[in-house]
């Protein structure tokens, strides 16, 4: 497969009456000249690293390199366990995992870029929560990473997965779109519904700028990982309720690319616009001794 269109993924899966992940695993094993088992084992390692990064990043005393952030995952976990949340234990737990993984990243811990380091909390936040709080088997979650990865490949070739190119819509937006497609598959949705979930997330994040305070992958990146999780779940649920995306996923991705191209340089990871240009952001980055 060429991974240049979401429709291609859907068509291939429908043609063979299989899940997108099954088709992708077979295709990638052939393309990489390896067995399906070898690929599954490699993906299992990635999943284990994701799980470990939830634990590492959930530490109460975790601090980022700059000292500007840390401990968000811990606070959210305590709050989730209090059982008195607005979103409920399930979603609050998913947010806590996303915050933890993202905090682990900011503290120079080990993570899986998915698709990037700045957006690394979203996919684990969704999938590990499905395993730990929803009874999905790890085997199924690992398989669904092939669906997430396939959507990511199309996004990378058709739009972008780099904040410096396409803004945050390309990083947290892409991660949430990939996660949402995987969630739909895990819930027994059709390949077409996976595509719709991706489309709805992309449509919801269109235009999100990349404006890291002090140029660091911390503010607002870490919190956008938690909101990205919410978007992935809400779009998956809309689709599973039978709501369709009126705009096909591929056209949403083309729009994302056009919007990314139209973004000025100041809103593409240069830390010169958006939140990074606010008075408080400037103060924060001046106090940051690690900025040269």
């Amino acid at each position: 497969m060429k991974y240049e269109s979401i429709q291609e993924l859907v068509d291939e899966a429908v043609k063979s009456n299989e899940k997108i992940s099954t088709v992708v695993l077979r295709d990638q094993a052939a393309a990489m000249d390896k067995t399906e088992l070898e690929l599954l084992e490699k993906m299992e390692i990635d999943f284990d690293v994701m799980k470990q990064s939830v634990i590492t990043g959930g530490n109460k005393d975790l601090k980022s390199m700059s000292g500007l952030t840390g401990g968000e995952g811990f606070l959210m976990r305590e709050y989730a366990d209090s059982k008195n949340t607005l979103c409920g234990l399930f979603l609050a737990g998913a947010m806590s995992r996303a915050l933890s993984v993202s905090g682990c990243n900011a503290a120079m811990g080990r993570i899986v870029a998915a698709p990037t380091a700045g957006s690394c909390g979203i996919i684990p936040g969704c999938l590990i929560t499905m395993c730990e709080d929803r009874g999905v088997s790890e085997k199924d979650a690992i398989m669904s990473l092939f669906t997430a990865g396939a959507f990511g490949m199309v996004i990378a070739s058709r739009a972008s997965i780099a904040g410096a190119e396409g803004g945050c819509q390309a990083e947290c937006g892409s991660a949430a779109a990939m996660a949402s497609a995987a969630l739909v598959e895990l819930m027994g949705g059709t390949p077409g519904q996976c595509a719709d979930a991706c489309a709805l997330v992309v449509a919801s994040q269109l235009g999100l700028v990349c404006d890291p305070v002090g140029g660091l992958v911390e503010i607002p990146c870490i919190k956008r990982n938690a909101t990205g999780v919410m978007l992935a779940f809400s779009c998956a649920d809309m689709v599973l309720a039978g709501i369709r995306s009126k705009i096909p996923a591929d056209e949403c991705l083309d729009a994302m690319r056009a919007v990314g191209d139209a973004l000025p340089d100041s809103l593409r990871e240069t830390a010169k616009g958006g939140l990074a240009a606010t008075p408080t952001a400037k103060k924060l980055s001046q106090n940051d001794h690690s900025v040269p």
Binding site: V24, Q28, A31, M32, L39, K42, M43, I45, D46, V49, S64, M65, C104, N105, A106, A107, M108, G109, R110, I111, V112, A113, A114, P115, A117, G118, C120, I123, L145, F146, A148, G149, A150, G152, M153, A156, I161, M178, L216, V217, E218
Partner: peptide, 13 residues
């Protein structure tokens, strides 16, 4: 390939 997207395993940030 799929591991360019889900991956690499890396030290942040």
């Amino acid at each position: 390939n799929v591991f360019d997207i889900i991956g690499p395993v890396m030290i942040g940030p």
